[in-house]
Design a protein around this nucleic acid. Sequence first.
RNA 1: CGGGGCGUAGCGCAGCUGGUAGCGCGCACGGUUCGGGACCGUGAGGUCGUGGGUUCAAAUCCCGCCGCCCCGACCA
Length: 572
Amino acid sequence: MKLSQYYIPTLKEAPKDADIISAKLMLRAGLIRKTASGIYEWLPLGIRILKKVENIIREELDAAGCCEVWLPIVQPQELWEKSTRWTYYGKELLRFKDRKGAGFCLAPTAEEVMTNLVMKDVNSYKQLPLCLYQFGTKFRDEIRPRFGVMRAREFYMKDAYSFCADEKSAAQWYQRLYDAYMRIFTRFGFKFKPVEADTGNIGGNFSHEFMVLAQTGENEISVCPKCGYTANTEKTEIEAPAPANPKPEDLLPAQEVSTPNAKTIDEVASFLKQPAEKFIKMLVYKADGKAVVVLMRGNDELNEIKLKKLLNASELEKAEPDFYEQTTGSPLGFAGPCGLKQRNAEIKIYADNHIKTIVNGIAGANKKDTHLKNINPGRDFAPDQYADLKLASKGDRCPRCSAEFEFMRGIEVGHTFKLGTKYSLSMGANFLDENQQSKPMIMGCYGIGVSRVIAAAIEQSHDDNGIIWPAPLSPFDVELIALDTQGEVKQKADEIYNALRAEGITVLYDERDERPGVKFKDADLIGIPHRIVIGKKLLPEGKLEYKARTAQKAEFWPIEGIERRIKEMLGR
RNA sequence: CGGGGCGUAGCGCAGCUGGUAGCGCGCACGGUUCGGGACCGUGAGGUCGUGGGUUCAAAUCCCGCCGCCCCGACCA
């Protein structure tokens, strides 16, 4: 491709709303432009990379036995009501009406439509298993889009769905897609880790996220260095700590202390000069409309996902001040577990396992400006249930082998789910087995954020001058720069351009009437891994300059046979 | 949705103690240059986000709205 005829508007400066390095570089290198918050235009160079990513995914999925389809992005309300997600998906689902007043949404994912498609044509176990996938635009009306295409509202995704007749086959297909994902992300040249994850809005009972390791990742990952258990920190299980087990004579009598205007743990802790881990923090939640009280150690954070799971609640939200005061009978900031059951017999109290480590702790006294000290679990209050409710953090240990967790950050580029029969039951996707029994199909679903893959690749591979594409994702194999726009240099460069292309090598040929510096800067910014320069310094010797994007210095290569040498280097 | 910040040329920004707009980059033309974002000259390009108010006069002061960004809440 001749650069003078191509559309790659590069920028010297990134727009100020670009918030992370990949977004800045994608804008500057002319891959994308921003249309609106979380919505982007993709330019020719961006599309080329998108296609590279798409093709690698397609090759691996086809090899794994999946079939490509193409589903609508505008989806009828009716189908979403069948699966009940019209009610439960929330505000991220962009809904609208057509001219006749019929309800539709923009697809944030496609379980409903895909299940509906398959159930129309599949009636027999003989037609299963089946795994269909598509590439397509998804829309999720995110509260706060950010990080360029990383968390966009409109994005490009590959989504695959497996349909099986029994658990064994479903597990095999899950593994098959998992393996395909491992190959795909390896081919992208990523440093990544599959981690156990929460199933969120999609549902189901088991899932893995594929995380590209990067400082700027939105997700925290917990890794057990000993047994290899790896999970998204928001779902990481942790070992219960040893309970304190104090002698009876160590337990001091409970005592009220005045703590004027000190509401938060930090305020009370510094007022009483006591460490935060001696405090019993009381949180009030509304689980499907019912009040629930959670006790956490003062310095620990509640993992709401764990709570939601423990309660088997479909909706969980933190109580508003009014509801909090009504439930606890205490002013905001001074509620504590002591006597709570006497005041509100209905209320269920859940406590994190770490509460058991507290001896002579401090809790709210349910009176304004007052706390209680020397509070002990068992003696002064009794939770209905102890459980693992803490968000994993430094110092926590692996539940499998007791080793201390390590933490790192990652970008979620893929997610696999074992859905079970969640959608087949609600939508009625049944088949007849060999015993004439009607059974629900067992499903799995598997996503890869194609546009996010590109941002992740850049986060993982760039330098001060620009992007450094992993070869498999590079928009072109080679960048060729002619330093003159006419004469021998230009003529030779044209010849090399044609020779390379004749060998099936894709070339971005910079023959613009620009100064050398401009071409070099743009080449570094765009980040094609191999660069060839033809100039009048080396031409008389029959040589050209070769430089790998990652190399410090250039090499001088003979022009003769350059196309074969490049081809060899590319491993073709 | 809560807290904070910002909307002035394609991009980055100045002007904001009121007097109808400027800088750098980019763009066009001419010339000199030509191996790491050249230089000189000449130009084109702006209803100063938007609606209202105050005033002889508003980019500038006041109010509403919209948009964008950050922190939080939320989230595949």
